[in-house]
Design a protein around this nucleic acid. Structure first.
Length: 622
DNA sequence: CTAGGGTTAG
C-alpha cells in the first residue's frame, strides 16, 4: 500500500488556524518571523501539508531575506518532497555560493524518480553555468531530450544560455538551429555567445536577422562592442537604439557609459547623466560606479566626486572607482586620503582597491607609502598580493629609478612573472636609460609575448637610443617575419559632440590640409621659444629631416592642432591617446599650452596629462 | 523558470 504522503490540513487543526498561519507566512519578511511560523506549523501539523510546506521552503530558499541552510534542514525532514520542493531547493542553490549542491540534489531527485517539470532545468542549468560545469551540462542536455523537455522553450533557452556563456558557441549554434521554437530570448543568448567569443561580425549577423529586438538585444550588442574595444560602434548602436524608440534602462546606460569612458567623450557622458536626472532614473551602485568611472576617465574629477557624494549606498567598488580615478590623474596624496576615509567609513578595501591605490602611489612617486601599503595587504587585510599588485610595485620602483629593487622583487615574488611585469621593468629601463638591462628584458618580452608589436618597437628603440642601428633594424625585421604589426598611435578629440580620430601619419581627415598648415606655424612659433625636436631614440634610421616629418605627424600633434583651430580660444582641449605619449609630443604640447594659453587635457595609455602654462601635471614623470 | 551591467598594474 502506498504511504499517505500528506495529511489534509483540516484533520490536524482547525481551518481558521491554518488559514491564519498561511496568511502570516505570506506576509513574513525575515527569518526571525519565519522561525516562529515554522514552530507553529510543526505544532499544528500544518507542515505535513504540501502547500504550506512549499511556501515555507520557498521563503527560506529565496536569496533576499531567507536562509538556504535553514531551508535545507526543513527540506531534509520532509517525507517525499514533491517536484516543486525539489525545484525550490535547486533554485536556491543555483543562486548561492555552492551551486554544486544543486547538481547533487538533482542527482538525488533522479535517484528517487521524482518527476521533472518545466521549472526544473532552468535552475539546474543556471547552476551549471555559474560553476562552468561543461560535462554536466552535456549530461543534463541528454536528460532533457530523454525526458521529453527538448521542445520546452524555457529549457532550451537555458541550454543555449549555458553554452553561450561558457564560450561553447558551436554547441549553442547547433542547438539554436535545431530547435523548433525560438523567441527573442533565444536570439539574445546567441548574440551574447558570439560577443563572448569576440565574434562581433556574427553577433551583428544575428542581431540584423532577428525578427524582434528588445532592449536586451541592443544592450548585448553595445556591451559586446565595448568588450571588443570598439566603443565608437557602441555609441553608434546607442544612437540607433534611441532612433528605434527603445526606452533606456540602467543596464543600457551602464554599457553606453563605458563606451564614453573608453573614448573619453565627456559631452556624451554628460548627456547620459543629464538623461538620468531628467528621467529620474535611480542611480544604483553599478550605475553610480560607471558614472564615476566615466567622469574620471573623461577628466572631470569634480563631477565624479559630486556623483559619489549623492550616492546612498557606497560600497567598496564605488570607493575603488574614486581611488582609481585619482590614480589616473596622478593625484596620489588625495588617493591616499580617500583610501583612509574609506576605512574610517567602515568599508574594507578589496584586491582591486589595492591595485588602485598602488597605481596612485606609482604615478605620484610615493615609494615609501606604497611599500607600507603593500606590506599591510597581507598582514592587516589578509590578502596575498596577486600578480597585478606585484606589477604595480615593479612599475613604482622602476619609475622611481630603483631598478635593482624592482629586479629583486621579481626574483623573490612567489608567482611567475608575466609579460606585464617585464613590460613594467622594460619601461623603467627606457626611462632611466639603462640600455643594457633593457635589451635583456626586451628579449625576454618578445619570447613571452611574440604577437605583441609594442614589444619589438620598445626593444628596437632601445637599440636606437644606444645608436645600434643594425640591431634596431634586425628587431624590426624579426617583427616583420613574425607577421606582427605595430598598433598605430591613435588620438581622439571630441569637438561639439563629435569624436574625431587621428592616426599617426594619417591624411584622411577632411581638414588635413588646414591642420598641416596650422602645425607648420605652430612649430615655427615654438622654435622661437627654444623648441628642438627630440629625435634621439626614434627608431627609424632616417635623415633628421625625415625623422622630423615622421615625429610631427604623430596622432596627438594632429589632434591638438585640430583642437586649436576648431575650438574657441581659451577652451580646454581634451584628447585621448591609445598609446603612451612620446617625449617630443609631450614637450610640444607643454609649449603649446603656454604660447596659445590653452589648457590641454590628455589621457594616454596610463594616465592623464594636464598641460597648463608650459607645465604638465605629470611632472614629466610618466 | 530562460536573455543584457561594476572599479583593475604596463
Amino acid at each position: 500500500m502506498a504511504p499517505i504522503l500528506f495529511t489534509p490540513t483540516s484533520q490536524l487543526s482547525s481551518e481558521s488556524n491554518a488559514a491564519q498561519t498561511l496568511h502570516l507566512l505570506q506576509r513574513c519578511s525575515n527569518m526571525e518571523e519565519l522561525r516562529q511560523i515554522h514552530g507553529q506549523m510543526l505544532k499544528t501539523g500544518l507542515l505535513l501539508d504540501a502547500i504550506p510546506a512549499s511556501k515555507l521552503l520557498a521563503f527560506c530558499a529565496s536569496p533576499n531575506s531567507g536562509s538556504l541552510a535553514y531551508a535545507r534542514t526543513v527540506f531534509d525532514r520532509i517525507f517525499r518532497p514533491n517536484t516543486f520542493m525539489w525545484n525550490t531547493m535547486i533554485r536556491g542553490y543555483s543562486n548561492s555560493k555552492e551551486p554544486e549542491e544543486a547538481l547533487l540534489l538533482y542527482h538525488h531527485m533522479l535517484y528517487h524518480s521524482v518527476p521533472h517539470n518545466a521549472y526544473t532545468f532552468p535552475f539546474l542549468l543556471k547552476a551549471c553555468s555559474s560553476m562552468s560545469a561543461s560535462e554536466e551540462t552535456q549530461q543534463i542536455h541528454a536528460h532533457i531530450i530523454k525526458m521529453g523537455f527538448g521542445s520546452e522553450i524555457y529549457t532550451t533557452n537555458s541550454l543555449l544560455n549555458v553554452y553561450s556563456k561558457s564560450g561553447d558557441i558551436k554547441s549553442a549554434r547547433l542547438l539554436f538551429d535545431q530547435v523548433d521554437q525560438r523567441d527573442t530570448v533565444s536570439w539574445n543568448s546567441m548574440i551574447d555567445g558570439y560577443t563572448k567569443c569576440g565574434e562581433m561580425e556574427m553577433a551583428y549577423e544575428i542581431f540584423n536577422h532577428m525578427p524582434e529586438r528588445n532592449i536586451i538585444s541592443w544592450t548585448s550588442m553595445i556591451s559586446g562592442c565595448v568588450g571588443a574595444g570598439k566603443p565608437k560602434e557602441a555609441l553608434n548602436l546607442f544612437h540607433r537604439m534611441q532612433t528605434a524608440g527603445i526606452k533606456l534602462d540602467n543596464v543600457a546606460l551602464v554599457s553606453t557609459l563605458q563606451a564614453c569612458a573608453d573614448l573619453g567623450v565627456l559631452d556624451q557622458g554628460k548627456w547620459i547623466h543629464a538623461y538620468i536626472k531628467k528621467h529620474e532614473i535611480e542611480i544604483d551602485p553599478i550605475l553610480g560606479c560607471v558614472l564615476i568611472d566615466m567622469y574620471t576617465k573623461c577628466g572631470d574629477l569634480e563631477e565624479a566626486i559630486e556623483v559619489f557624494r549623492k550616492m546612498e549606498e557606497k560600497g567598496v567598488t564605488v570607493w575603488t572607482a574614486m581611488i582609481s580615478g585619482y590614480a589616473i590623474h596622478g593625484r596620489g596624496r588625495e588617493a591616499l586620503e580617500w583610501f583612509m576615509k574609506m576605512q574610517t567609513a567602515g568599508v574594507e578595501p578589496n584586491q582591486m582597491t589595492f591595485t588602485g591605490i598602488l597605481t596612485a602611489c606609482s604615478h605620484a612617486g610615493l615609494v615609501h607609502e606604497a611599500k607600507l601599503l603593500f606590506e599591510s595587504m597581507e598582514r592587516i587585510h589578509g590578502f596575498k598580493p596577486s600578480i597585478e599588485h606585484y606589477g604595480c610595485m615593479v612599475d613604482l620602483l622602476g619609475r622611481a629609478g630603483l631598478l635593482k629593487e624592482a629586479e629583486e622583487l621579481i626574483e623573490n615574488m612567489p608567482v611567475k612573472p608575466n609579460a606585464a611585469i617585464w613590460g613594467a621593468l622594460l619601461n623603467a629601463c627606457h626611462i632611466h636609460g639603462n640600455l643594457e638591462l633593457g635589451k635583456q628584458i626586451g628579449k625576454i618580452l618578445i619570447q613571452v609575448d611574440p604577437g605583441h608589436g609594442g614589444r619589438y618597437i620598445h626593444l628596437a628603440s632601445i637599440h636606437a637610443a644606444a645608436g645600434e642601428w643594425n640591431q634596431a633594424a634586425r628587431v624590426r625585421r624579426q617583427m616583420k617575419e613574425q607577421g606582427v604589426s605595430k598598433l598605430p598611435g591613435c588620438s581622439v578629440i571630441s569637438v561639439n559632440g563629435t569624436a574625431h580620430e587621428f592616426l599617426a601619419g594619417d591624411g584622411s581627415h577632411p581638414q588635413i590640409k588646414e591642420i598641416d598648415h596650422a602645425f607648420k606655424h605652430i612649430v615655427e612659433r615654438l622654435r622661437e621659444e627654444g623648441y628642438k625636436p627630440k629625435l634621439g631614440d626614434l627608431l627609424l634610421d632616417l635623415e633628421d629631416k625625415d625623422k622630423e616629418t615622421a615625429i610631427h605627424h604623430h596622432s596627438e600633434k594632429l589632434a591638438v592642432t585640430f583642437g586649436l583651430i576648431s575650438t574657441k580660444p581659451g577652451m580646454t582641449i581634451r584628447i585621448v591617446k591609445n598609446l603612451r605619449v612620446c617625449e617630443d609630443c609631450h614637450t610640444v604640447i607643454k609649449l603649446i599650452s603656454k604660447v596659445y594659453a590653452r589648457e590641454i587635457l590628455m589621457r594616454d595609455r596610463t594616465r592623464f596629462h594636464r598641460f597648463k602654462d608650459g607645465n604638465c601635471t605629470c611632472g614629466d614623470y610618466w
